[in-house]
């Protein structure tokens, strides 16, 4: 089965429905049927996106890491999977799911605008280090999306203040995963280019987001930021995280190695000449 932009759009709408129903249920705690409908839509969205993700893996012949289109699927799958997984482990309440669904919908709507052609992986992406880096990145984004989703619940819900532990727990776990993502990215950069850091915009944006989340953790630990105040900042910094993950495609292709859309660039052999644009005759 070919994964088409139309299918991604459909997946995005289901996730959007789950998210909107969930948010409305926060404001109407006396209408439990809304929460049930939201939960059902979230499950449907998760299964649909996972199905598309597996189909894309088969279609492309590799882990869906290459290009904005298929990485959107992977990120959306992680964002929808994490709250479900942690609900089974009784670590994150269901209240985090609607926010995560809205994030997944946005990622899918954005990703479907890009070239859906499945390309073979270039040599620079054929490595288990890259696979680990990509998987860690997806889960880092997913964990922090759940953190943002839970923060949104704390801010928007009616009723008594909710428990803060899922907020700080997802924040800490997300920070760990984000750190691991930066570390594995640096490792692979060294393997591929012989330098561990080169101020590529993907690195600087990722590091800025890492510092921002680090600041938030310090404010929680030392200034006792908690509850709605912490939640507001979690949401704010999540915007920076989204830019660092998905906004890289807005940069010129010569400025970063991290644009993997083949219609936007051709990968050469990994020589530093790619920085200077075309080879000189």
């Amino acid at each position: 089965m070919n994964v088409t932009p139309a299918l991604m759009l459909a997946a995005g709408f289901i996730a959007l429905l789950a998210g909107v129903l969930g948010v409305v249920s926060w404001r109407r705690p006396n209408a439990p049927h809304l929460a049930r409908m939201a939960g059902g839509a979230a499950w449907l969205s998760l299964l649909f996106v996972l199905g598309l993700w597996i189909a894309r893996w088969i279609e492309a012949g590799h882990l869906p890491i290459f290009g904005t289109f298929e990485s959107a699927l992977s990120i959306a799958a992680a964002v929808l999977l994490i709250p479900t997984l942690f609900r089974f482990l009784d670590r994150i309440p269901a209240s985090a799911t609607p926010g995560a669904c809205l994030v997944a919908a946005a990622v899918l709507f954005h990703g479907r605008l890009y070239d859906p052609t499945p390309y073979a992986l270039t040599i620079s992406e054929r490595s288990w280090v890259v696979d680990i880096h990509a998987i860690v990145a997806w889960f880092a984004f997913g964990m922090l999306a759940v953190n943002a989703g839970y923060a949104a619940w704390l801010l928007l819900r009616k009723g008594n203040p909710g428990p803060a532990r899922p907020l700080t727990g997802t924040l800490t776990a997300g920070f760990l995963l984000h750190s691991a993502m930066l570390a594995t990215g640096s490792l692979y950069k060294f393997l591929l280019f012989g330098v561990a850091w080169s101020f590529d915009p993907i690195e600087t944006l990722g590091f800025a987001a890492w510092c921002a989340y680090g600041t938030l953790l310090h404010m929680h630990l030392f200034a006792k930021w908690d509850g709605r105040k912490l939640a507001g900042w979690c949401l704010t910094i999540f915007v920076l995280l989204v830019v660092s993950y998905r906004g890289i495609v807005w940069f010129p292709v010569w400025s970063t190695y991290h644009i993997f859309d083949m219609d936007m660039r051709i990968h050469l052999t990994g020589s530093e000449q790619y920085e200077e644009g075309e080879r000189v005759d």
């Binding site: 080169s198 600087t204 800025a208 807005w250």
Partner: peptide, 13 residues
């Protein structure tokens, strides 16, 4: 680092 990222959008590496 945000400044660096903004610069990277218009300046060579």
């Amino acid at each position: 680092y945000l400044l660096l990222a903004i610069w990277a959008a218009s300046s060579p590496p």
